[in-house]
Simulated assay, not measured.
Amino acid sequence: MNNAKPSVLDEFCTGDLGFMVTSVRNGIQDALERELAPLQMTVPQYVVLNCLAKGWGRTLSDFCRVLAYDSGAMTRLLDRIAAKGFIRRVENESDRRSFLIELTALGQAALPQARQVTEVAFRRLLTGFSEKDAETLHKLLSRILINAKSD
């Protein structure tokens, strides 16, 4: 009988990698939700505001791709953010069937504090990591993303 312990790579290939990545994602989400709660903001709402500020998206379909939401769920999320006064919908001159999303003055004002509390959460999650550890983590996660896109 072979009592050899399976390699980590073998364990990852039997589903452990997916489980671990999902667990890490959930842990990050929970940590960010705790930090954003006093601001009356959820993680998806923050992601939309941050994407707008960074120029990473302005349309419903842009945000659907970023958050992996369907258009109905994204419409409801944008409605909630608009109700808080953080965003507004404006006419899309190049496509009358759609609209563009813009940050309002209130959204622009809320963003620095939201960014600050998310940074607190990420720094806590990276406690004990050296710069070299962070570089290695970035490199390895980037490699997984590249491999995922090449399938």
Rank of each mutant, 00 (worst) to 15 (best):
A105P: 07
K5P: 07
R115G: 06
S61L: 13
L17I: 09
G128S: 05
N3Y: 15
R143E: 15
Q29S: 07
I28F: 10
L103A: 05
D62W: 08
L67A: 01
R76Y: 12
A109Q: 11
F86N: 03
R97V: 03
P44C: 05
V48L: 04
A105N: 10
G85S: 01
L39Q: 06
A110G: 10
E131G: 08
F129C: 06
T14W: 13
A148G: 14
A68V: 15
Q108C: 10
A83F: 06
K54F: 06
A73V: 09
D79K: 13
D62T: 05
L67I: 06
E102Q: 07
P112I: 08
A4P: 04
Y46V: 00
C51P: 00
P44F: 01
L52A: 01
R89W: 04
R25N: 11
D10W: 15
F99E: 07
V47H: 09
E93P: 12
S94A: 13
I28M: 06
L103P: 02
A109G: 10
G85W: 00
I146M: 09
Q29R: 12
A134P: 03
I101W: 01
R124A: 14
T127I: 08
M74R: 03
R123C: 05
L140F: 13
A121F: 02
S71V: 12
A82W: 00
N3W: 14
R97Q: 14
S94Q: 12
M74T: 09
T136L: 15
A82D: 08
T59Y: 13
R97H: 09
T118C: 07
E33S: 12
D10T: 15
R80I: 00
R143W: 15
S23K: 08
E119H: 06
K149V: 11
V47W: 04
K84T: 05
C51I: 01
F19D: 10
P6G: 08
R143V: 14
R124Y: 03
G57N: 03
A82I: 00
Q29D: 12
G27Q: 06
D151K: 13
D30N: 13
S23V: 03
E33Q: 04
G85Q: 05
D151E: 12
E11Y: 02
P44D: 02
E35V: 00
L111S: 04
L140V: 14
K54C: 09
N50Y: 06
T59Q: 15
V117N: 02
L39Y: 04
D30E: 14
L36P: 03
E91T: 12
K54G: 11
A121T: 01
C13P: 05
F122D: 09
V90S: 10
R34W: 03
G27I: 01
N147G: 11
M20S: 14
E102P: 01
V120L: 12
G18Q: 04
S7C: 06
P38I: 06
K5S: 15
A109R: 08
E93W: 10
F12H: 01
E93N: 08
A110I: 02
K149A: 14
D133F: 08
I28A: 03
